[in-house]
């Protein structure tokens, strides 16, 4: 899970994953690891989610946290246009480090879509580049489970 600061990465996973570590791990060492069991076509898959501290002016995402990832979520806050740019920038770094691992761009806070700053044109541009984009709402749980399923399927396909 990578994205700008306060885009809702933690909120997205919080309700759907099994966690044993405190939230403060993120602010201390920059990452918190959670686990999620998911069933894809009858096959049990264990996902280890690295919820990486949101990038801001004071803290940069450590590339080493992305090394070895099988896939990743880019997360942006639909109500904040700058998070879109941050996500694009992070994608450049992540795709390089993970050697083009599968990813999904999650635009969070779909429950507040009326106030979104990220425009449909921006989204369309990315779709045309072949990006998979899912509008999610951590608050309502909309599309969160679906996002995990789709990313997992992509990761499995890329390995086969």
């Amino acid at each position: 899970m990578v994205g700008a600061f306060a885009v809702g990465k933690t909120s997205l996973v919080q309700r759907f994953v099994h966690s044993i570590f405190s939230q403060k791990y993120q602010t201390t060492i920059g990452v918190k690891i959670d686990q999620k069991e998911i069933n894809i076509d009858g096959k049990e898959v264990t996902l280890l989610l690295w919820d990486i501290h949101g990038e801001d002016d004071f803290m940069k995402v450590k590339p080493t946290y992305l090394i070895g990832s099988s896939g990743y979520f880019l997360v942006a806050d639909g109500t904040r246009a700058d998070t879109y740019d941050t996500a694009i920038k992070l994608h450049e770094m992540a795709s390089s480090v993970t050697k083009n691992a599968p990813f999904i761009f999650l635009i969070n806070k779909s429950d507040l879509q009326d106030t979104w700053e990220i425009t449909e044109n921006q989204i369309e541009t990315l779709i045309q580049k072949g990006w998979q984009i899912i509008r999610t709402s951590a608050k309502d749980g909309i599309n969160v489970e679906n996002a995990f399923v789709q990313l997992t399927q992509s990761m499995l396909q890329s390995q086969s």
């Binding site: 570590f21 990452v31 690891i33 959670d34 686990q35 280890l48 690295w50 946290y65 090394i67």
Partner: peptide, 15 residues
């Protein structure tokens, strides 16, 4: 939770 602990250990190493 060995899986998560292992990953966290790795993360700490990276950190």
């Amino acid at each position: 939770e060995a899986d998560m602990v292992a990953s966290m250990l790795s993360a700490i190493g990276d950190f």
